[in-house]
């Protein structure tokens, strides 16, 4: 096995193991910190896939932003509220959870189906880009490519997302503002 493969398996193992821990543990704060490890290992997998820009963006947005905000919500809510949350019924299967269980099983089936159906070594579009010499090599500048594509080919989705985010921001500002009482 080459060193890249070894790294891949190590990181994939960390991702899956820590994700399982996140889902299974009862200590909610620890599960958030474990989620940080999941995201970090995932960023490592992105780097292996030559998507270094995506990897760093993931760290900036998830670790620097979302995880910190989740922790914020935790620390503002106090220990009593949290301990009530943690005293949930521990059974994996019970009636209250059946919709979630159904969804999870169906999603799992879909994932297994995708894994079995895809012939990852002989994908058509990968072969095409290799024959057309458009495949990205380790020393290529991925960032420039992303920037140019965002501003030309994918401009409309990009702008649509920015409008969506703007709406979310305005909504958040409106919700958090105190009503002026007269």
């Amino acid at each position: 096995m080459s060193i890249v493969q070894v790294l891949f398996y190590i990181m994939a193992f960390i991702v899956i193991g820590s994700a399982l821990f996140v889902a299974a543990t009862k200590n909610l704060v620890r599960s958030i910190f474990m989620f940080f490890i999941t995201l970090f290992a995932l960023a490592g997998l992105y780097v292996l896939a030559l998507a270094d820009f995506v990897a760093i963006t993931q760290v900036v947005i998830y670790v620097g932003g979302i995880l910190v905000l989740i922790l914020f919500a935790f620390m503002l809510s106090g220990r009593e509220t949290l301990s009530i949350l943690q005293q949930q019924k521990s059974k994996l299967v019970n009636v209250g959870k059946s919709p979630a269980l159904l969804l999870a099983t169906l999603f799992f089936v879909v994932m297994i189906y995708v894994v079995l159906k895809t012939d990852a070594d002989n994908l058509i579009w990968v072969k095409q880009s290799i024959t057309n010499k458009t495949a990205i090599k380790p020393n290529d500048l991925v960032t420039d490519n992303i920037g140019i594509n965002l501003m030309t080919r994918y401009l409309l989705p990009f702008e649509a997302i920015s409008v969506l985010l703007m709406i979310a921001l305005v909504g958040a500002a409106h919700l958090s503002r105190k009503e002026v009482k007269e």
């Binding site: 760093i56 900036v60 620097g64 922790l71 960032t143």
Partner: peptide, 21 residues
């Protein structure tokens, strides 16, 4: 690394997590 600046920006934000921890 050709993303050096962005990388440093990302790594520094990890410190917050350690402090919250």
């Amino acid at each position: 690394i050709n993303l050096g600046l962005y990388y440093i920006f990302a790594i520094i934000s990890m410190e917050t997590l350690g402090i919250l921890m």
